[in-house]
Design a binder for these strands. Structure first.
Length: 567
RNA sequence: CGGGGCGUAGCUCAGUAUGGUUAGAGUACUUGGUUUGGGACCAAGGGGCCGGAGGUUCGAGUCCUCUCGCCCCGACCA
């Protein structure tokens, strides 16, 4: 491609609403342009990057026998009614009616459609397993799109679905997909972590997220500093504590603690580590029908992890509750405890089971119990409620957890029969018995990956594309096109590189050196060959974008040198 | 959906508290000239429904009401 004939609208200034590096540079360098909230046009360079990622995905999917399909973007609403998701998805589903007044939705994901294409067609266990996928535009009418391509309403996603006759076979395929996803991200040149994730209301036994590590990531991960284990904090587990503070000595008794309400106050008042205090967090749990206040008890040194708390009571949401509401129930804020507690449903953190020497609220203003042995609560409901903190121990190796930020670019999980059962997608097993398909689902955010590459690979000058994602590998830049000999050399180099299968762009614009260099750095081609002053000595230079290092090479050896650099 | 902010040239923004000639700058664009290794310089140009509708006023980019759009924080995001 000749730069002079390309459409690459670069700008010196960022769009006023761009905050993230990926958003700023992808806009400034002319890869994408915003159309409306959460909607983006892909310009020629952006489209090339998108296609490269798609190609890698397609190659890796083909390598493990997955079959590419392409399902209708517009899907009949009936399918969504059948699965029960039309309500659940709510306003994120963009609905509309056709001329005959039939209701349709724009596909935000394709479980229903995918089940419907195999339903009644795959009818025997002999046809299983089956793994089908597509790379497709999706639409989710997000309440708040943001961060450019990172959270758009219209986006490109690879979504795959596998169908099995047994859970063992699903487990096998799940591992195959995990390996394939890992391979894709490695080929793209990304640093990432595969972490355990919350499987949410969908349930299932396995749920893993692929996280590209970047400061701007929206998810917080707890990663082990020693082994491979990592988890989204929503799902992270930790090893039992090894360092236990010295226990306070006290017999069980009711103790007057005037106006001592917070954990800080309490531990100061008794001069004990917060580990020996019991924190009560009351929230209103919202269910599909109705809601109720629920109290969660955790150690004072811990924080409540809301997703875990929500899962522990099967709620769809937890919302804050006011002190007035607490008083109405008969609870005294600051003095709530589990002993003789019958005013509210409560759940206790696993780490409080059989805890001794505890201090907890006495359910009466200005009184706490001390010397509490929580083994008396063994009949209560226990669950993992506490948020994993930095420094907590890894459950696998005894290493320490660190927190880091990640961009979720993929999510794979085992669906089981969540969709096949309600949609009555069944096959006959060896015994002639009708069974719903056992399913797995594998998603990857393709357009989000474009942004993720830049979040992880940029500097103050612009984009730094990895070799696998670069729109062009080499930029042949003529610093002054009026120098006919320089231009002629560049033209021949441009032709030669292309014949060697290297994607090349020729910057033949009538612009000055500095202008073209800035563009080259902003756009982020891995290598820019500078054809200019050094030509008089039979030399050219290669600017390596990643380091901004400029090396001088003989004009006759540049192709070989580039091939060496590309590797 | 709750809270906040912003809509003026392709882009980034002044101008709006206190209404008053023909609405500005930088950048980008066109033409001519000079330049040519880090976003050059000189000169001459084109480009605006001041987001939209209604109102107040002799007069509205500026004041009032309504509306649409975009952004930020939160909620939400199987």
């Amino acid at each position: 491609m000749r730069f002079s004939r390309a459409y690459i609208p670069t700008t010196k200034e960022s769009p006023k609403d761009a905050l993230l590096p990926s958003h700023i540079y992808l806009s400034r360098a002319g890869f994408v342009a915003q159309v409306a909230s959460g909607l983006y046009n892909f310009l020629p360079l952006g489209k090339r990057v998108l296609r490269k990622i798609e190609n890698i995905i397609n190659e890796e999917m083909a390598a493990c026998g997955a079959l590419e399909v392409d399902l209708s973007f517009v899907t009949p609403a009936e399918l969504w009614q059948e699965s029960g998701r039309i309500e659940k998805f709510g306003k994120e589903l963009l609905r509309f009616r056709d001329r005959k007044d039939n209701l349709f939705v724009l596909g935000p994901t394709h479980e229903e459609m995918m089940v419907s294409i195999v339903r009644n067609r795959v009818t025997s266990y002999k046809q299983l397993p089956l793994n089908v996928y597509q790379v497709k535009t999706k639409f989710r009418d997000e309440a708040r799109p943001r961060f450019g391509l990172m959270r758009a309403r219209e986006f490109v996603m690879k979504d795959g679905y596998s169908f099995h006759a047994s859970t063992e076979d699903l487990d096998r395929e799940f591992d195959v997909m995990e390996a394939a996803y890992k391979q894709i991200l490695e080929r793209l040149g990304l640093t990432f972590r595969i972490v355990e994730a919350d499987s949410g209301a969908i349930g299932g036994t396995g749920s893993k997220e692929l996280m590209v590590l970047a400061q701007s990531g929206e998810d917080t991960l707890a990663v082990c500093d020693t082994c491979e284990y990592g988890a989204n904090v929503e799902a992270a587990r930790r090893a039992p504590r090894t360092i236990i503070p010295e226990a306070p000595q006290a017999d069980f008794m009711r103790f007057k603690t005037p106006n001592v309400k917070s954990i800080d106050d309490l531990s100061a008042f008794f001069h004990v580590d917060p580990y020996y205090t019991l924190k009560a967090v009351v929230m209103r749990a919202v269910y599909t029908e109705g809601s109720e206040p629920v109290c969660f008890f955790i150690r004072g040194c811990d924080e409540l992890q809301e997703v875990k708390a929500r899962n522990s009571v099967g709620a769809i949401d937890l919302v804050d509750i006011s002190e007035a509401e607490l008083s109405e129930i008969g609870l005294v804020p600051g003095f709530i405890g589990p002993l003789d507690q019958d005013k509210i449903r409560f759940v206790m953190d696993n780490d409080t089971r059989n805890a001794t020497s505890m201090i907890c609220g006495a359910n009466e203003a200005d009184y706490h119990f001390v010397g509490v042995n929580l083994s008396v609560m063994n009949e209560a409901v226990f669950a993992d409620l506490a948020a994993v903190a930095e420094g907590d121990g890894c459950p696998h190796c005894g290493g320490k957890f660190l927190h880091t930020k990640g961009i979720e670019v993929g999510h794979i999980f085992k669906l089981g029969t969540t969709y096949s059962a309600p949609l009555k997608a069944e096959f006959l097993d060896e015994n002639g018995r009708s069974q719903p398909f056992i399913m797995g689902t594998y998603g990857m955010g393709v357009s989000r990956l474009v942004a993720a590459v830049i979040e992880q690979h940029h500097d103050e000058k612009g984009c730094i594309w990895t070799h696998a994602t670069a729109p062009y590998m080499v930029n042949v830049m003529v610093s002054n096109i009026k120098e006919e000999a320089h231009l002629a050399y560049a033209e021949s180099l441009y032709t030669e590189l292309q014949s060697r299968g290297i994607e090349t762009i020729l910057d033949d614009r009538k612009e000055r050196f500095g202008f073209k260099m800035s563009d080259a750095e902003l756009i982020g081609f891995p290598f820019t060959v500078i054809v200019g002053k050094e030509m008089e000595n039979g030399l050219v230079q290669i600017m390596i974008r990643k380091t901004c290092e400029i090396i001088t090479v003989n004009a006759d050896d540049v192709e070989t040198k580039l091939e060496e650099l590309i590797g």
